[in-house]
Nucleic acid binder design. Structure first.
Ligand code: ATP
Length: 656
DNA sequence: GGCTTGCCTGTTTTT
DNA sequence: CAGGCAAGCC
């Protein structure tokens, strides 16, 4: 037993109990910063230490970034314990010696790649992102001749996603809505859903929801497949359990119900994804389906100061639908929370950057500081201030890297090479860069209609190019393949024409850097893995590890992370809580989001808000967020902008 | 077929 | 205010 010591040292009694409870169901419910994620990492290391094969361990995280972190932590623990002799580093170790650590979506990809053919899902399926699915719905809206004034294809798309999250298939829904008047929304939705599924099938594509729902259907209908995966993993772990949805719950139940070695950890107060199907009732379902589950509460917070924790506590207790939990800390009281009221978003941004400058002077590295906000749109003003004052920063949101136009264009070539049924990608690349194949001819070609001679010539050139690229793909890995695509399709020239072309080329070059990671694989594998990563990448993946940069991110994207100093910007009514979430239940989720934001901080919280803010060229006069009144006054220091107010009113009188 | 212009509309969070 | 999109011009 002695060799467990390293893995168990540095854990409190409850944490040790959770780590050592490896057989049977385990539910860890505990507040922010209490070491839930740490427990999972140590538990896995401990199981491996005890002699289990890493391959038989499954761990589900909320993001890919969290998965990478988890792998590193496990590897370091094992190394510290002196069992595995290979070199330690921040790099994740080889897959064979490591458990499967990934998101539910990544798990779905793995299962569907292996056994999806049972459900007529090709091995080389394309994963559609949200903009792809929007495009599909738009096209289908036109093809089905829906009256777009009455039927918003975007709303239909959202409805389809909601149905999928509820595990309702197109066939199920068609049955359910059969009685409806054919003009009723349900009837149109049903028609759309079926057409959508047919289109995805025809193009060999799956959307994000499919990665979960098709996995559930596969495991439910194919006994031997279920058996295969049940036997694959003897120990199952799930982090951030409060935000799992119905399909994810089903997957975990299916995989765990035989051996019942399943450990889930979560915090109901941190449930912030209900709009995506996240359902905290999964915790009660867990207790129902695993009635003998050991339940462990962790009550010590190791992250934050007493003041931060007390503030967060006083905020969250305003939620009516909530069970109280204990969370205490031995950390010092720490500094009061600073609340700064600024004149407008520009001043807010400047103040934030000034504060950060002062913090750095006093010895806080930039990388220990994060600026959190409710909406991505807020980042623009803040970014400008960073650029102005040359403080290094990393925006962990905004236009996701792989969704940038120039990136998606290049990516679509690879997608099409990998899956020739992917007509969405085909339509995108056929005339990008421009090569004289307009919408009309493209549609004709995709529909395989006969072409005129001059049309054939243009299409022939395109086909030759695709053939050349396909040939290269057979022998060269993704990195070289990308370079070839860029060359052969003429992207450099294409981008040299526009103003922001330099930035775009820079982004494309970054894409090639990403591809470096897959050099160790065969050409085919490297292409597949690359596409998978591109489709499943999470925002947190953009976090600049080890670099001296302030991180700018939404409160949602900060889930699970921690920083010495957290600055929360835009703490105003209408923004936080957001104007679109002000109905009853949804304000509670906004409050939880604020709770998450506060509890990311180890040492210091600064909250900023403005009295006026520009939104779409209109001046808004927002009140301070209701959540601020919930923080006891003795925990805060308020900085109003008195002089600024006076100046401003003087100006107003003078000039208008 | 490709490009420009000007209108319009939509306001949140993301695997 | 910005991005998307249709109409209209070259
Ligand atoms: N027993 C312990 N002793 C010292 N530090 C600990 C202990 N347990 C956890 N920590 C530290 O506390 C911090 C929070 O841990 P962790 O991220 O695992 O918490 P969590 O419960 O998953 O948090 P959250 O739910 O807020 O994301 C980490 O820095 C971790 O190293």
């Amino acid at each position: 037993m002695q060799h467990f010591s390293d893995i168990l040292s540095g854990l409190n009694e409850r944490q040790k109990e959770a780590v050592l409870t490896t057989e049977g169901p385990l539910l860890v419910l505990a507040g922010a910063g209490s070491g839930k994620t740490k427990v999972i990492a140590h538990r896995i290391a401990q199981i491996i230490q005890r002699g289990a094969s890493p391959k038989r361990i499954l761990a589900i995280t909320f993001t890919n970034k969290a998965a990478e972190e988890m792998k590193i932590r496990i590897a370091q623990l094992l190394l510290a314990d002196g069992k595995s002799g290979s070199a330690a580093s921040r790099k994740s170790p080889s897959p064979d010696s490591m458990p499967f650590v990934g998101t539910f979506h990544a798990l779905g990809v793995q299962i569907l790649k292996r056994h999806g053919s049972r459900m007529l899902i090709p091995q080389n399926f394309t994963i559609l992102d949200e903009s792809d699915t929007k495009q599909v719905c738009k096209e289908l809206g036109e093809e089905l001749a829906l009256d777009t004034d009455t039927y918003d294809t975007e709303r239909l798309r959202a409805s389809i996603s909601r149905l999928k999250n509820e595990l309702i298939s197109a066939a199920d829904f068609a049955r359910e809505s059969a009685q409806e008047d054919e003009r009723a929304y349900e009837a149109i939705l049903s028609k759309m859903y079926s057409a959508y599924e047919a289109r995805l099938f025809k193009t060999g594509s799956l959307d994000f929801d499919d990665l979960l729902i098709k996995t559930v259907f596969l495991l439910e209908t194919q006994k031997d497949v279920l058996g295969y995966w049940q036997k694959q993993w003897d120990y199952i772990h799930i982090d951030e359990y409060q935000d799992t949805n119905k399909a994810q719950y089903a997957v975990s139940l299916l995989l765990a119900r035989e051996h019942k070695n399943i450990a889930v950890v979560g915090d109901i107060d941190q449930a912030i994804y209900s709009w995506r199907g996240g359902d905290t009732r999964n915790i009660s379902y867990f207790e129902r389906d695993f009635p003998n589950a050991r339940v462990i509460a962790l009550e010590d917070n190791y992250r934050s100061t007493k003041i931060i924790l007390e503030a967060a506590h006083n905020v969250i207790v305003h939620n009516a639908q909530r069970k109280n939990i204990t969370l205490r800390t031995k950390n010092p009281d720490g500094e009061r929370i600073t609340i700064r009221v600024l004149e407008n978003e520009k001043k807010e941004a400047e103040t934030i950057v000034q504060d950060i400058g002062a913090l750095q002077q006093s010895g806080v590295p930039f990388s220990d500081i994060a600026v959190l906000f409710r909406t991505n749109a807020q980042s623009r003003a803040i970014e400008e201030a960073f650029v102005q004052s040359a403080v290094p920063y990393k925006l962990v949101a905004g236009v996701r890297f792989y969704e940038r136009k120039e990136i998606k264009d290049v990516l679509s070539y690879i997608r099409y090479i990998a899956n020739k049924k992917d007509t969405l990608a085909l339509k995108r690349i056929i005339n990008t860069p421009l090569r004289g194949i307009g919408a009309v001819l493209a549609a004709k070609y995709v529909a395989q209609k006969p072409l005129k001679d001059n049309e054939k010539a243009r299409i022939g050139q395109f086909e030759n190019m695709i053939k050349d690229i396909s040939d290269v793909a057979k022998t060269k890995k993704i990195r070289e393949l990308l370079k070839y695509v860029i060359l052969r399709a003429g992207f450099k020239k294409h981008h040299s024409k526009t103003d922001d072309g330099k930035d775009r080329i820079k982004n494309i070059e970054e894409l090639i850097t990403v591809a470096d990671k897959f050099e160790g694989l065969t050409p085919k594998e490297s292409m597949e893995k690359f596409l998978e990563e591109a489709a499943l990448m999470s925002e947190q993946d953009l976090i600049a590890q080890g670099s001296e940069k302030v991180h700018l991110l939404t409160a949602h994207a900060a889930k699970g992370l921690e920083f010495r100093v957290v600055i929360i910007a835009g703490m105003e009514e209408g923004l936080f809580p957001h104007v679109l979430s002000q109905e009853e239940g949804r304000t509670e989720e906004e409050r939880r989001l604020f709770y998450v934001a506060l509890t990311r901080a180890k040492e210091k919280v600064v909250i900023t808000l403005t009295t006026r803010r520009m939104l779409w060229g209109e001046l808004l006069f927002n009140d301070p967020s209701r959540f601020l009144r919930e923080i006891p006054q003795h925990l805060t220091t308020i900085n109003e902008y008195k002089e600024a107010l006076e100046e401003e009113s003087g100006e107003t009188i003078h000039y208008s």
